[in-house]
Every structure is written in C-alpha cells, then in structure tokens.
C-alpha cells in the first residue's frame, strides 16, 4: 500500500523527485501600538492641516469660497448660529422627531418580529409583505407621508419610524428563528405554556438581536427626520440646511451639517452606552 503511493508519487514528478519544503525561520509579525496621546496628536494634526489647506486654498481662490465657503467664515457663522440663530430650536425639533421615530420604529418592529414566533403560518403569510416593505425606497415616499401627516412633528416621526421599523422587524424575526430548539423542548418538557416559553425564553433570546440594531436605527431615524424636514417644515436642522442652501449661505449649510454631526455623535454615544448597559444584562 505504502509502496504504491510512493511509486505513483515519483512517477508524477517524473524524475524531479518531490519538492522539498523550505526550512522557515521567521519572527511572528508584531506591530507595536503607539500611545493614545501620539495617535490623537496625529489625528488633530491631520484635521488642522486639512482645515488650514481649505482656508488657504479659499484665500488664493483655488477653490471658490462662494460655493465652498471657508473655515473662518464657517466659524463666525457657527458662533452667530449658536448664540442668536435658531440653534436651540432647530436641535430640539430634529432631536425630538429622531428620538420618537427611533423608539416607535424599534419597539414596534421588535414586537412585530417577535410576534412571528407565535405561528409559523402567520409568519409565512406576513413575510412577503415585510420583504416588499423592505424593498420600497421609503425616502421616496417622504412627500406622500408629509401630505398625509402634515407639516408638523408627526410626518417626521412617521418617516423615521418607516425607516427603522422594517429593519427591526427582520432582525427580531431572525432572533426568533435563532431561538434554540432544544431549549424550547426543555421548556415544553417541563410543561410550560406558550406564553411562558415566549416571556421566559423567546424574549430574552431576542434581546441581543434587538440591541444589535439600536445603533443602525439611530442613524436611520436621524436620516428620516432630516428628509422629512427637507420636504416640508418650519424648524429643524434639515430645514436650516435646505433654507441656507437655497439662499447661497454656504457657511450656514456647513454649520448646520456640523451641528447635525455633533447631534448624531451624541446620540450614537448614548446608544452605544445603552447597548453596553443592556448587553451587560444579557451575557455575563
């Protein structure tokens, strides 16, 4: 047996003999990590460099300051916007519709997704509709939603909800399908009712899945309310951006975008913190 293998091996290699493996003496590649201070310094330096470059380029008309504005002008506008412009009102409006849409979309999506656990037939009937909803570009419906819900808060919340609910549903449903079948059998072997299995097994197993969509949803909700404000509104950062753009106040566009990024960052951090907090309750 062994002979046969050796013979065929040498035939294939036709006299060359089997290729010898190289002997390797090599160090495990290890990258030394720099100190946080150094990393931050470099990051700040890059940012400052880019801003300075922009400023200089605008001064020398390499980029047109009429269309692109320039850092010093943006800074001045920012100070005015924060001190006397409608910053507080705008932030409040955008924040409010985002948070409401986020909560509404996430909660109802999670509930809808988990409800599929109750009946496989019901899940099969509803599923295609969910997939359809997912494939609709919901932002394209924004003008319609504004028509139906009016110019006020509800239309922004509705768009934010529409964006978040589908993802939440699908994710919670994926969580439901991932519920350990054996754990379900354990519950039933003890004699559990369906309600007991749902509350004591299905919901806790789905929580990590729901946590995983919080961060995505906060971004989606923010997009939803901004688009709602684009379409029609009286207040909000989205409206400020649209208004400033249409009157060629480019510095104000940048300022609103900056404030929006700051707001979004704050919400991301909060959700990240919430995520960690909830996660702690789930896997120990």
């Amino acid at each position: 047996m062994t002979d046969a293998i050796v013979a065929s091996g040498s035939k294939d290699n036709a006299g060359r003999g089997p290729t010898r493996q190289r002997k390797i003496v090599r160090k495990l590649p290890v990258e030394k990590s720099w100190s946080t201070a150094l990393i931050v310094t470099i990051q700040v330096a890059i940012f400052a460099g880019l801003v300075a470059l922009w400023e200089i380029a605008a001064d020398f008309k390499v980029v047109d300051p009429f269309f692109w504005s320039k850092p010093t002008a943006i800074w001045d506008t920012l100070v005015i916007f924060l001190s006397q412009g409608g910053a507080a009102t705008d932030i409040y409006y955008t924040f409010r519709s985002t948070i409401l849409g986020f909560i509404l979309g996430t909660a109802s999506g999670a509930l809808l997704g988990m409800s599929f656990w109750w009946s496989r037939n019901y899940a099969r009937i509803i599923q295609p509709y969910i997939i359809c909803l997912e494939s609709i570009p919901k932002l394209a419906l924004a003008p319609l939603i504004v028509l139906v819900f009016g110019m006020g808060l509800s239309s922004k919340v509705a768009i934010a909800t529409a964006l978040t609910i589908v993802v939440s549903t699908l994710t919670a449903y994926a969580g439901v399908r991932a519920v350990d079948k054996d754990q379900e059998r354990l519950f039933y072997s003890i004699g559990a009712s369906r309600w007991q299995v749902f509350t004591k097994l299905v919901i806790p197993s789905c929580i990590p899945w729901i946590i995983s969509i919080l961060r995505v949803n906060i971004g989606l909700a923010l997009t939803g309310s901004i688009v709602g404000e684009f379409v029609s509104s009286e207040h909000g950062l989205g409206r400020t951006i649209l208004y400033a753009g249409s009157t060629y106040e480019i510095s104000l566009v940048w300022v609103a975008v900056l404030v929006l990024s700051a707001l979004s960052m704050v919400m991301y951090v909060t959700v990240g913190w919430l995520e960690k907090f909830l996660q702690k309750g789930v896997d120990h």
Partner: peptide, 17 residues
C-alpha cells in the same frame, strides 16, 4: 402529554441570562 416526566436533554441547556 408534556410536563409529566422530568427530562434532562443531551445538552445542559442552562439559560445564559
């Protein structure tokens, strides 16, 4: 009928939470 006997399945199935 379920719940009539105690059944320890092949895995321990302790709930992690």
């Amino acid at each position: 009928t379920i719940g009539q006997v105690g059944y320890m399945l092949q895995k321990d199935l302790l709930l992690p939470w």
